[in-house]
Design a protein around this nucleic acid. Sequence first.
DNA 1: ACAAAGTGGTCAATTATGTTGTCCACTTTT
DNA 2: AAAAGTGGACAACATAATTGACCACTTTGT
Lengths: 257, 257
Amino acid sequence: MGDGIFSQVSHVRTADEVSSQIEDLILEGVLRVGDKLPGERDLAEQLGVSRPILRSAIKDLESRDLLVTRHGGGTFVADVIGDVFSKTMLELIADHPKATDDYLEYRRDVEAVAARYAAQRATDDDKALLSAIVERMETAHQKSDPSEEAAIDVEFHQAVCECAHNVILLHTLRSCYRLLSNGTFFSRDLVYGFPGARTKLLEQHRAIYDAIMDGDPDAASQAASAHMEFVQTCKMEALKADAWANVSKLRKKMRST
Amino acid sequence: MGDGIFSQVSHVRTADEVSSQIEDLILEGVLRVGDKLPGERDLAEQLGVSRPILRSAIKDLESRDLLVTRHGGGTFVADVIGDVFSKTMLELIADHPKATDDYLEYRRDVEAVAARYAAQRATDDDKALLSAIVERMETAHQKSDPSEEAAIDVEFHQAVCECAHNVILLHTLRSCYRLLSNGTFFSRDLVYGFPGARTKLLEQHRAIYDAIMDGDPDAASQAASAHMEFVQTCKMEALKADAWANVSKLRKKMRST
DNA sequence: ACAAAGTGGTCAATTATGTTGTCCACTTTT
DNA sequence: AAAAGTGGACAACATAATTGACCACTTTGT
């Protein structure tokens, strides 16, 4: 505002409007890492702009590492998940089991917040997406495939987080899921392979899911905390059993010669 | 949204952006009926657009009766206060005293709502404007000029309404103030001329003002209701006193011959 | 393995929109 | 009464966006 009540007109260029729209879709998690955008000719039509203008916007987004294009291959959402920790710090963390405990403690609290928000804010579309994931989770459970179940686990938590409609929460937890998925802290199979864990985890996911569907923030928060506490306990017990199995195996090896 | 996640780009023209900004200023009461806009050359500079573009916007606003321009004279905000009632209905109302009672009943309830919102929502700038009006009101009171006080009365209620930050409330009450100001219901001087009324009205206005300044919605609502009830009582008593004065005058006339 | 289809990359010609600058005529202010 | 400020109009120019065409790479289908 100058000295009067009028403000400067924005003069937004068309290409910048396109950039802004695509940015928002990435920020909100509607467009995710690896997603392929429609071809330029089709996308220009959907946006109602000319191809050179769209290309200008894509160039801008590429220069900011939000998109990558391949000549003849298409346009994709770049790997935009930030790295919470540097590589050096990750190496330190991997060598210190206490960091895993701290990580689980952090996630217990933050997942509880996410679940609470999800129960308060999930839209009907959000709930439909969540329902589809839980259905796939139950199907995988019946096939007794811990790896498949573990993969859907991360997808479920990501979906809960999207229901929370807080982009900072979404991206910070996403970075954590990345670390979990690539085994920086511990192998998820360690938890899923634990006897009886698969059934328990499914129950807990259903409890979170039911609370969100019921719109019950307290129940959702409690279910999320209980779930993370169980995962923490499982990890500790599984590590012990692993150690015991290793000792038994060594004993057997010693005795059979 | 078509079949995808992308939406059509708006392609807003500069002139339309200017129109929209001026519309908003009128709607929010920042620009009021009769206000003169800056000259075109100056305004174009403040908005950061060219004069032909500004003129195009003004033409648009003129065609929708939001602005009026006079060649060589300037550009003004048009009379945008709507008429709640048609002329025919106004004539009916003027002939039916009960309508005045209904009007005061309506205002008592709606003014209470406005005062409540004002107490909740008034910004520091709002409060500064309100303080200036109350100061002028007190000055007029000391000058013992009921007409001046009555004029500031409407200004005070309008300012309270602006503090409520609800444009529908603002414009509907404005239409009502218009009817009050032009004597459709009753003469405001009837109320202000009533013995002791001036002091009482000032006290009541201060009570509303103090509650808004204190951010107390309940107190503001109650003060506004009490104020309108008092006005209603005054109007009735003043009408009776008028009738009595007329009778006494007739008696004196009969007895002095 | 090859051809067709789909993709990104580039750019000239054209159209649309906005700006600059100038001049006229009316109204207000000094 | 003159000067200053205002709205009214418009041509020339600049900028932004669209249209249309063609090239080269990649993916898909046969």
